[in-house]
Amino acid sequence: MASPKYLAVFIALVAVFNISNAQGLKLGFYRKTCPSVEAIVKTTTARVISQAPTLAAPLLRLHFHDCFVRGCDGSVLINSTRNNQAEKDAIPNQSLRGYGVIDRVKSAVEKKCPGVVSCADILALTARDAVSLIKGPIWKVPLGRRDGRVSIITEALINLPPPFANITQLKASFASKNLTTKDLAVLSGSHTIGTSHCSSFSSRLYNFTGRNDTDPTLDPNYIIRLKSKCKPADLTTLAEMDPGSFKTFDEDYYTLVAKRRGLFQSDAALLDDPETKAYVKLQATSHGSTFFKDFSKSMEKMGKIGVLTGNAGEIRKRCAFVN
């Protein structure tokens, strides 16, 4: 195992790489080549969200899962082939949804500006617009990302923080992407919308340490409620991550975490670090919440992770296939 000294150097080098590449992004990148791209993306996304508002959460998650593996290069969208198993087939990604929305937006953009706008940029814009359309925060999305040509199943397993991660693992994962401990606390707030399969947290209810026990950090009354919904080995039932307001982007997630009702171990882990715990308490109790403003800042940082710019990568014609 690498020493802490070498690990720190590696994280610093990754951060430098992320920052240097992100400088190739800019607002208005397609001003001359496809000036209507943002309008097309928002109009197409709005049609989808007006019919299925619950797709906002999966689209945001799709963007997150893309950026944490190889950077925000659209590699999560690539299909597996006979010779290669891609990221989307990794266990953490098998529950991802929203690919059809990205294809729909891409097709609309291609009709107007063929071969100009990357799938990575379209994913970043669609995620932002989907969240804003359900009255969530809005953030700046500088453009100019290029699409990656590589997508490897094992890299998703290595890079995506699992729902059972502890605070040390979470902080290390985010640090490797040039994201701070505050970014971890802020971006965890995306769990204010959406649902999860029972299998992602059922061990907390039925077999936490392998002795048919429950997670002591989870509110006992909440365990009873979750058990009534999720039976052992249930792979299909969905549970709301923020019960009562899972369609609304708000600070309620932090209220739940503060009450020891976060659905995942990774949610509960936010109470195990002084900085993340303080952020949870602040958002759970403040009336002039900074959550939207903080979320916008953190999303702008996340959207710049490991991007390909300039002549790197390609502009895919279809998001699921390398040219």
Rank of each mutant, 00 (worst) to 15 (best):
L157M: 12
I223A: 10
I158T: 14
D213K: 01
I134R: 09
G136E: 02
G144R: 11
P137K: 06
L170N: 07
Y222C: 06
K140M: 01
T180Y: 06
P137W: 07
K135I: 03
L184P: 02
F208G: 02
N207V: 05
T192R: 08
L143N: 08
R225D: 14
G136A: 04
A156P: 12
D183W: 02
T181N: 12
V150I: 14
T217C: 03
L205C: 04
I224E: 12
I153D: 12
Y206I: 01
I223G: 01
A185G: 13
A175F: 07
L184F: 08
S196E: 09
S203E: 13
N166D: 15
R145G: 04
H191R: 10
G148Y: 06
T195W: 07
P142E: 09
H191A: 13
N212K: 15
G148R: 03
T192E: 07
F174W: 07
F174Y: 15
T214F: 07
C198I: 01
V186P: 02
L170H: 03
I158M: 14
T154L: 12
A165D: 05
I167M: 13
R225A: 15
I193S: 00
L218Y: 10
R149P: 00
V186Q: 02
R211K: 15
Y206D: 04
I153W: 14
N212S: 13
T195P: 01
R149T: 14
T168Y: 11
T180C: 06
F208Y: 15
P220Q: 09
S190E: 15
A175N: 10
S190W: 12
Y222D: 10
R146F: 09
I134H: 05
V141R: 00
I138A: 15
L179D: 04
V141A: 00
T168D: 14
G194F: 08
